[in-house]
Nucleic acid binder design. Structure first.
Length: 842
RNA sequence: GGGGGCGUAACUCAGUGGUUAGAGUGCUUCCUUUACACGGAAGAAGUCAUAGGUUCGAAUCCUAUCGCCCCCACCA
């Protein structure tokens, strides 16, 4: 009834449809829904216009494993999906596309541009959702959200207004990171520093009314047009006499003071630094301390302003640099220059150099919020797995700086801020204020043009998607969420912000546990990069090898928090496993009739030694898998399961051990394996489950409770070890004796020849071969050809040597008076087992 | 400058105080085609980076060193 090879493509879509139709992704629709305890996960929302990459697949796989496992374990398991509007990323994408059609966003205006973005969102938004479904994600689509849905927009506005009312957002003039290409400010986290070679110019600044000069060092000579001071370290002996004197700036001829400030590093360059408050954050801080003016000489397009002087206004910074250097050379004011390596700030989005600019932006005061998050981390209200990431978070939160949340973008949540046209006083309001300006009494307002940082809305994600600011039953039931699963790369961007905002608005953590997984690297061990074409694309892989193979390969051989490499070969290996499962199922279902797996009652008793053994192993593995899952050790869980299913069950119990099978055992083991494997490989397990006519879906089958091994089962484990060795021994004889010649073996002792033949598949002769030697395997005596006996003896000799080493070690441990009792007890029983095996071997 | 991770078989990686250190891939030899060649058996292959220390016992904990990688930071 099952085809010969597993064909994922024909199976997966109908199965997902069937799950959807059953409605169990929605925890309210589960059997006994009301009695179930809640378990909830918020899906990290992918960029709405993005493409599913392998990192998402890992995210989705681990979360689906948890969701399915908990659902099967009797929880009201909610995995809430959604997508993110991703302000900058999306706007840039749409802008680029329009530009290719010759359309500029400035030409069409804000409203028309936004219409285009919404169209884009409608067109491509569904695609990423389809790709998420393709991976088998069992999330509740009836609760799906988008960060710019009306109710989420309300949440964002409510949050902003509250922060404003509480004095936690403010408008400030700061030197911010300005991206000239994207025409917006970006946050500290969106800046990427790269070590690059550069030239450090040493420039003489002549002192006023003296022949002396002070030499400053800079990599950006053009900014000297905006200098308002020269700073030295207060204790720098070289410059003591100069502090407080005035310098006449070359080119602009402005008079600026020499100031003393701790910030200056006396050992760098000349120990004297030019201060450009409008174009350097550190210089800005110094200017604040010393009440210096802050003229802006570079504008938002990266061009020199009028303040830079008549010769410079309107030219680019690079042209200005050349011109400044040329003028300095002519005045012989360049003391020297040297090649250095320094880090240069780039915009991580547009890949262009950041222009630090003085600008008015909106900030969130993060200190009080970070304090809440720190407290929650210290008191383990939120547990981080693995816990070293808690330390990373704590360190970041302790040194947190205010968060620039305004972006000069059109796509996003527009700031609910209105400025009085007359006096520029801001008022926070969703709609245009009707009241007069509280400052000047005027009535005319203009709406702030800016939008909020994408991460502001994602920071509210765990509770805004559950209905906040309304106090819905979902919010009460599913918040705080149980687990957040994500990669370490967005620890600060997202995890930290969610903690701060949830604790502030809900007085509770957003999630009880954060599970941090590593990043998926390519076969060369580098971060996957689409532009370089070195990535592994999940969707084509799922199509080629099956979604389950992809999911398994993302989990097996990995540890929490560690990056790992992904290769097609690894996925192919898991495809082979799926095929093995498929075929062993085919075999099991071909044994006996009707082809049913049997219900929970099919727990076979008694049976042969092999039966007891395989069930004991199953129970052992079943509890191992559960334990590993509880510790988020997905890799270990799958590994234990695969070893059992493939090696112990399929290869040993089914294939090597040729005794007639107990179909009840076969079915019971297969049934349990399908249940245990389902969270990891949902499609194939459900497909097999359904192929045998089970009415209830596997996805809501009960997860096995930890089974205690019976005494008989416990004993069967070592006993069966001996039995396995008997069979291996005979197989070895057969293999070595074969060489296309019939093997002559005659059992001479207790074991019935017929039984031996059935156990092992080896044919036995009526008479011992001419040059027969006696061989003893597990108490049974056999007469075999001399050459075969020799090989068997060699094989046995190796085992004897190993055993002797093992026994020596165990004896040492047993004799070790300082070792704990249970360890010595264990060693004692290991020792007696090894000794009896040694005795068997003679 | 501060912080973190990794170094285990040819390759990719698990294991993190107490079985003879494991898996997958690859390799060697053999078997098999009425569940599966996307198969089965057997095998070769590792001073668990190096050097100290703690311990009855260390791949596992501590310290140092070497090598690789990453994150954070106002290196003018």
């Amino acid at each position: 009834m099952l085809p010969k090879a597993y064909d994922p493509t024909s199976v997966e879509t109908p199965i997902y449809q069937r799950w959807l139709k059953a409605g169990f992704f929605n925890p309210d629709k589960l059997p006994n829904a009301k009695r179930r305890k809640p378990f909830s996960i918020s899906m990290p929302p992918p960029n709405v216009t993005g493409e599913l990459h392998i990192g998402h697949s890992l995210d989705l796989t681990t979360q689906d494993i948890l969701t399915r496992w908990k659902r099967m374990s009797g929880f009201a398991s909610l995995w809430l999906p959604g997508t993110d509007h991703a302000g900058i990323a999306t706007q840039i994408l749409v802008e680029r596309t329009l530009r290719e059609q010759g359309i500029s966003r400035y030409a069409i205006g804000r409203e028309t541009f936004l219409k285009h973005v919404w169209q884009w969102k409608e067109k491509y938004g569904e695609r990423i959702v389809e790709q998420i479904k393709r991976l088998g994600a069992s999330c509740d689509w009836s609760r799906e959200h988008f960060t710019m849905d009306p109710n989420l927009t309300t949440a964002v506005q409510t949050a902003f207004l509250k922060l404003f009312a509480d004095g936690l957002v403010y408008r400030g003039e700061r030197v911010i990171h300005w991206c000239v290409a994207d025409q917006t400010a970006i946050s500290d986290l969106e800046v990427e520093y790269r070590e690059e070679p550069g030239t450090l110019w040493h420039i003489r600044y002549p002192l006023l009314n003296r022949k002396q000069s002070i030499t400053v060092a800079t990599t950006r000579p053009e900014t000297m047009l905006g200098d308002t001071a020269v700073a030295v370290h207060p204790e720098d002996k070289r410059y003591q006499s100069l502090i407080g004197q005035k310098v006449k700036l070359p080119i602009s001829s402005r008079l600026v003071p020499i100031i003393a400030d701790d910030h200056v590093d006396p050992s760098f360059g000349t120990g004297a630094v030019k201060v450009t408050p409008a174009h350097d954050a550190a210089d800005f801080a110094m200017a604040e301390r010393h009440a210096l003016p802050k003229p802006a000489v570079i504008d938002q397009r990266g061009q020199m302003t009028a303040a830079a002087g008549r010769d410079f206004a309107g030219i680019s910074t690079l042209q200005a640099r050349d011109l400044v250097l040329q003028m300095l050379r002519e005045s012989r004011l360049i003391a020297k220059y040297e090649q250095i390596s320094h880090s240069v700030a780039y915009c991580s989005r547009s890949n262009t150099i950041i222009e630090p600019l003085l600008s008015k932006q909106w900030f969130v005061k993060t200190k009080p919020l970070a304090a809440l998050a720190l407290k929650a981390l210290h008191s383990k209200k939120t547990v981080v797995v693995p816990d070293r990431f808690a330390k990373v978070l704590i360190r970041w939160l302790k040194n947190i700086k205010d968060w620039n949340i305004s972006r000069q973008l059109w796509w996003g949540h527009r700031l609910p801020i209105w400025y009085c046209v007359a006096c520029d006083t801001p008022t926070a309001s969703i709609k245009e204020p009707r009241a007069r300006c509280r400052n000047c009494g005027d009535r005319a307002y203009r709406h702030d043009e800016d939008t909020l940082d994408t991460w502001f809305s994602s920071g509210l994600w765990t509770f805004s998607t559950l209905g906040w600011p309304k106090l819905t039953s979902d919010l009460k039931r599913f918040h705080p969420t149980s687990v957040l699963g994500t990669g370490w790369d967005i620890l600060f961007f997202w995890v930290a912000r969610m903690m701060m905002l949830s604790l502030y608005f809900r007085q509770e953590v957003p999630f009880k546990t954060v599970y941090i997984h590593g990043l998926v690297l390519n076969a060369e061990g580098k971060k996957m990069s689409k532009s370089k074409g070195t990535g592994v694309d999940p969707i084509p892989m799922a199509e080629k090898y099956g979604t389950d193979a992809l999911r398994l390969s993302l989990v097996i051989g990995t540890a929490p928090g560690l990056d790992f490499r992904m290769s097609e070969q690894k996925i192919a290996g898991q495809r082979n496993f799926c095929n093995k499962l498929w075929n062993v199922s085919r075999y099991v279902l071909s044994q006996g009739s009707p082809p049913k797996l049997g219900g929970d009652t099919a727990k076979p008793r008694g049976g042969t030694l092999a039966d007891a053994w395989v069930i004991a192993r199953l129970n052992e593995v079943s509890s191992t898998v559960t334990q590993h899952l509880a510790k988020y050790q997905f890799g270990l869980a799958v590994e234990a399961l695969q070893q059992f299913l493939w090696k112990d069950f399929a290869d040993w119990y089914v294939e090597i051990h040729k005794v007639e099978k107990n179909t009840a055992v076969l079915r019971h083991v297969l049934r349990q394996c399908l249940i245990l494997l389902h969270p990891f490989a949902p499609f194939i397990t459900e497909a097999i489950w359904q192929a045998v006519g089970e009415k209830r879906l596997l996805m809501i089958e009960s997860w096995p409770k930890a089974a205690r091994l019976t005494a008989a089962q416990k004993n069967s484990l070592p006993e069966f070890g001996n039995f396995q060795r008997l069979v291996i021994g005979l197989r070895n004889l057969k293999i070595h004796g074969a060489n296309n010649q019939p093997l002559s073996i005659q059992p001479t002792a207790k074991l019935n020849r017929e039984l031996l033949a059935r156990l092992t598949g080896v044919a036995f002769a009526d008479q011992a071969p001419a040059e027969a030697d006696r061989v003893v395997i597990a108490d049974e005596q056999l007469m075999v050809p001399g050459a075969v006996a020799k090989q068997y003896a060699d094989w046995r000799q190796r085992e004897v040597e190993q055993l002797n080493r093992y026994i020596a070690q165990k004896e040492k441990l047993v004799a070790n008076a300082k070792a704990p009792g249970h360890v010595r007890e264990q060693a004692k029983s290991d020792l007696s087992a090894a000794r009896s095996r040694l005795a068997e071997l003679g």
